[in-house]
Computed example of a mutant assay.
Amino acid sequence: MNEDDDLPEEDAPEFDSATDPKQLKRKVQRKKFEADEAGDFWRHALSVETGRREVWKILEAAGTFKTNFSASPVGFPDRDATMFILGQRELGQWLWRALTVHDRDGVWLMQSENDEAFKALLQPARKSRTVNVD
C-alpha cells in the first residue's frame, strides 16, 4: 500500500476524521484490502474438498437450509427458543451469502457434493438407449 499503512496501531489516530481526505482514503483502501483478503480466504477454503465439506457442516449446523419452530415439552410454542434457532439460521445465511459473493462456482460445487438433491448434477449423464423398431 503506502507508508501510512506501516504505522503501528498505537500511532494511528484514535478516531477517523470525516473531513481529512488522507484518513478517508486510507480507510477506503483498508476496507478494500480486507474485502479482497476475505475473498481470497473463502476461495481457498472452497478450492479443496475438505474445505467445502467442513464449510457445509457449519452451514448445516447453523440450520441454514431448514425452518424450525420450537415447542415446550407440553407442545406450546416456545418463542424464545424459536428466536434463538432463527438467530443461528441468520448467521448461516449470512455465511452462505458471503461465500456466494466471493466464489459462486465453489459454492455450487460444495452444494453439488454435499446436498443430496444436487449430487446427481455431478454424475455423468447417462447415455440414452434407442430402440430400433423395424
Rank of each mutant, 00 (worst) to 15 (best):
F118V: 06
F84G: 14
H44F: 05
G92R: 09
A38N: 08
A62N: 02
W108Q: 04
L46S: 00
V107S: 00
A45S: 04
G75I: 06
W96P: 00
A98M: 11
V101A: 13
H102S: 11
E90I: 11
E60I: 01
F76N: 13
R97P: 00
F41K: 06
S47F: 09
E90M: 15
L95A: 08
Q111R: 05
Q111F: 03
V101C: 14
L59D: 00
D105W: 08
V107A: 02
K66E: 14
Q123H: 10
Q88Y: 14
G39E: 12
R53L: 08
G51K: 03
L46Y: 01
R104E: 14
F76D: 08
E116C: 02
L99D: 00
G106T: 04
V55N: 01
R79G: 15
E49A: 09
R43S: 04
K119G: 12
F84T: 15
T67M: 14
V48I: 11
G92S: 15
A61G: 03
L109T: 09
F65D: 06
Q93E: 08
P73K: 11
S72W: 10
L86M: 10
A98Y: 04
L86C: 12
F41A: 15
Q123D: 13
S72V: 11
V48N: 05
R104T: 03
M83C: 15
A98H: 09
E49S: 15
A81F: 10
S72M: 10
G63E: 00
Q123C: 08
K57A: 14
G63Y: 02
D80N: 12
G39C: 07
V55I: 12
G39R: 04
M83S: 13
A98Q: 07
A120L: 12
M83D: 14
N68D: 06
L59K: 02
E90Q: 11
P77M: 09
W56T: 03
L109D: 02
K119T: 13
R89P: 03
E116D: 14
A61Y: 08
I58A: 11
N68H: 07
T64A: 15
T67G: 09
V74W: 11
V55G: 01
I85V: 14
T100A: 10
D78K: 04
I58D: 01
D115S: 06
R79C: 10
L91W: 02
E116R: 02
D115V: 03
R97S: 08
A62D: 00
H102C: 13
W94D: 06
M110G: 01
Q88P: 10
H102M: 12
E113L: 03
F84M: 09
E116M: 02
S70I: 10
R104K: 12
K57R: 11
P77S: 13
I58P: 02
G87Y: 06
L46K: 00
K66Y: 07
V48P: 07
A120K: 15
A61V: 05
M83N: 15
R79V: 10
M110A: 03
N68R: 09
F76A: 12
Q111D: 11
K66L: 12
A38S: 12
L86I: 13
G75R: 15
G51V: 05
E49G: 10
Q93P: 01
L99A: 06
L122M: 10
E90H: 09
A62I: 01
A45D: 02
V48E: 01
V55M: 13
T82Q: 15
I58S: 07
E49K: 10
N114G: 04
A38E: 13
